[in-house]
Write a protein that binds this DNA or RNA. Structure first.
Length: 286
DNA sequence: GACCAGGACCATT
DNA sequence: AATGGTCATGGT
């Protein structure tokens, strides 16, 4: 078995840039020659190429399933897109605008914590908070020579042992007690992140929503971005805006009604549709 | 300087 | 069930 610091993951229809900048993840940095992040404690640099993603790590790897899983690089996006509604010019326009946008499969705790920090924050600010948390409390990971230091996202155990004040100093404001409370519930074993995966969607959602600072929207983000429930449909202000503009003549509907519409209209991969609409309406001028 | 941001929560109606 | 206020902080 070969063991190297580089590989080439074949992909079809993968827009790395759109995927990493579409508000799913907040800890990836654009470098001159690629995207740098940390996946399951390993520093990674990714570079888009023809029909592939070129990968560099800091330490030799004997296998790459951890990265294929995160990137979902073996998923056939075309198959997902065929499940979208036939007659929907708005969704079709959104897909055309960012074809190759994929859903990642994140580590549950990091995803959950990140989205607890996301409430009424702009993505640029969420990134700042997550970066500060990592630099202060994350485990340092080894990086190739010449690169700035890298940090893993702090574990639930680490966060649980902090004070609310220490978290507030990371500029997360009123979200500090939420993050602390959720970390402590996890450390106590009141919720086992890996156990969520086997549950039916509604049970999984209910379990997440029992955590402090986690409502429907954040629960759906975690269900979609970490656990891979393809019908989870987070409705934030942008998605609400897109749905109301495209499907309801700009009338405002409650998030609950919008989600019900989404279930009926978008089908078995509604979560993907949601991500296309989110990225589309945020990146289209006007 | 006003307005808004990938909301949750609590108290009222 | 639906509305309104509150909670920090910083971008636009």
């Amino acid at each position: 078995m070969s063991c190297t610091c580089e590989t080439r993951l074949p992909v079809r229809d993968y827009d790395l840039e759109a995927t990493l900048t579409s508000g799913q993840v907040f800890a990836w940095e654009r470098m001159a020659d690629g995207w740098v992040g940390v996946v399951r404690g390993r520093w990674v640099k990714l570079r888009p190429a023809a029909e592939a993603i070129l990968v560099q790590t800091a330490q030799p790897q004997s296998e790459w399933s951890w990265l294929k899983e995160f990137l979902q690089s073996e998923l056939e996006l075309a198959t997902v897109l065929t499940t979208f509604p036939r007659e929907d010019p708005h969704l079709r326009a959104a897909v055309a605008a960012c074809r190759g946008l994929q859903l990642l499969r994140q580590e549950p705790w990091e995803c959950l914590a990140s989205f607890i920090l996301s409430s009424t924050k702009q993505i640029a600010q969420i990134r700042q908070i997550v970066r500060t948390l990592g630099e202060r409390y994350g485990e340092q990971v080894s990086v190739p020579a010449g690169h700035p230091p890298g940090f893993a996202f702090p574990t639930a155990q680490t966060v649980a042992n902090l004070t609310e004040g220490a978290l507030r100093e990371c500029k997360m404001g009123f979200r500090a007690p939420y993050l602390l409370g959720t970390a402590r519930r996890i450390v106590e074993g009141a919720l086992v992140p890996e156990s969520i995966r086997q549950l039916p969607l509604n049970e999984a959602r209910a379990n997440l929503m029992a955590l402090p600072g986690v409502g429907e929207k954040i629960a759906d983000c975690v269900l979609l971005f970490a656990y891979g429930f393809p019908t989870a449909f987070p409705v934030d202000v942008w998605v609400a805006r897109a749905l109301s503009r495209f499907y309801f003549r700009r009338n405002r509907l409650s998030p609950a009604r919008l989600r019900r519409f989404a279930d009926e209209h978008f089908g078995p991969n509604a979560g993907y549709a949601q991500q296309y609409l989110f990225h589309y309406i945020r990146t289209q001028p006007g």
